[in-house]
């Protein structure tokens, strides 16, 4: 989507060649702009994935009703929290009285991985205003983060891609929550249509694009090994965070080493 010759996939950021203030990635990302066109392309690119995600929105709506939330409350949660896994866990924890601290802490812990994902967007987002950055980050979930990384890594310069792809996810997420909470279990399980595989498929596709030769191998093996080990030891989704941080630490140690 970019015609800028500077943004070349074959020359990824090589911080070792530059000083910290002006890293190579800064040069690579100068063409990043925030435009209506970026919102439109993000919206359209993510629309098919949003339809798949809606399968989960329906499931969440059903679960929320079973836990005693009204349709309006379930819709409100989808509209302002916009983080599927944590919402499903929250309504599973829901009881009377509501275990407020448990629900809020579980939400925070499950979503902590978004901090790492947001940090990974920094080389491109540093060219946007803070209003654009923080407005976009509200709409960031796993699926559109993956699509946005793919867009940027392949040389794209659409700074509004995350926002556009997030808006379509938000629309489908809220609408499908209302549908699920209203009609109940009539739709059936997402597994029946393979919808449960969409997130894994998005990430497999992204992994293919992020593969950058043998220098990628060590951090990926570290991330894979620690994540699988951590998934067996710790509850919830801590393994994503642990795997990501372990790989980054190894790279920090290996750097200049």
């Amino acid at each position: 989507m970019s015609t800028d010759p500077d943004t070349d996939e074959s020359s990824p950021p090589e911080p070792s060649e530059t000083v910290s203030e002006r890293s190579a990635s800064e040069v690579d990302t100068d063409s990043v702009t925030f435009s209506r066109e970026g919102i439109r392309i993000g919206f359209l690119t993510c629309a098919p994935i949003a339809i798949g995600v809606a399968g989960y929105g329906v499931a969440f709506g059903v679960l929320a009703r079973q836990s005693g939330l009204s349709v309006a409350e379930a819709a409100l949660m989808s509209a302002v929290v916009l983080a599927g896994a944590s919402q499903i866990v929250a309504v599973e924890l829901w009881a009377d009285p509501i275990p407020i601290a448990t629900v809020v802490f579980a939400t925070f812990a499950i979503n902590l991985r978004y901090s790492l994902m947001g940090a990974a967007l920094e080389p491109w987002f540093r060219h946007l205003t803070s209003k654009q950055v923080y407005g976009s980050l509200f709409f960031m979930v796993d699926e559109n983060w993956a699509l946005t990384m793919r867009e940027f890594k392949s040389g794209g310069s659409l700074g509004a891609f995350l926002l556009g792809s997030g808006i379509v996810l938000w629309l489908f997420w809220v609408a499908s929550t209302i549908l699920g909470a209203t009609v109940g279990g009539a739709i059936g399980e997402p597994e029946q249509y393979g919808f449960d595989f969409i997130l894994a498929a998005v990430f497999v596709a992204l992994a293919v694009e992020l593969w950058d030769g043998s220098s990628t191998l060590l951090p990926w093996l570290v991330a894979l090994g620690t994540a699988i080990a951590a998934a067996n030891v710790f509850p919830g989704q801590w393994y994503i965070l642990i795997g990501g941080i372990a790989a980054a630490l190894v790279e920090v140690i290996r750097h200049d080493g």
Partner: peptide, 22 residues
Amino acid sequence: DRVEAGLSVLPGAIVVALLGPE
């Protein structure tokens, strides 16, 4: 730049860490 080198592997590492156990 040392920390930045660590951050540069984050996208792939997060993808693999999410995908592996899944």
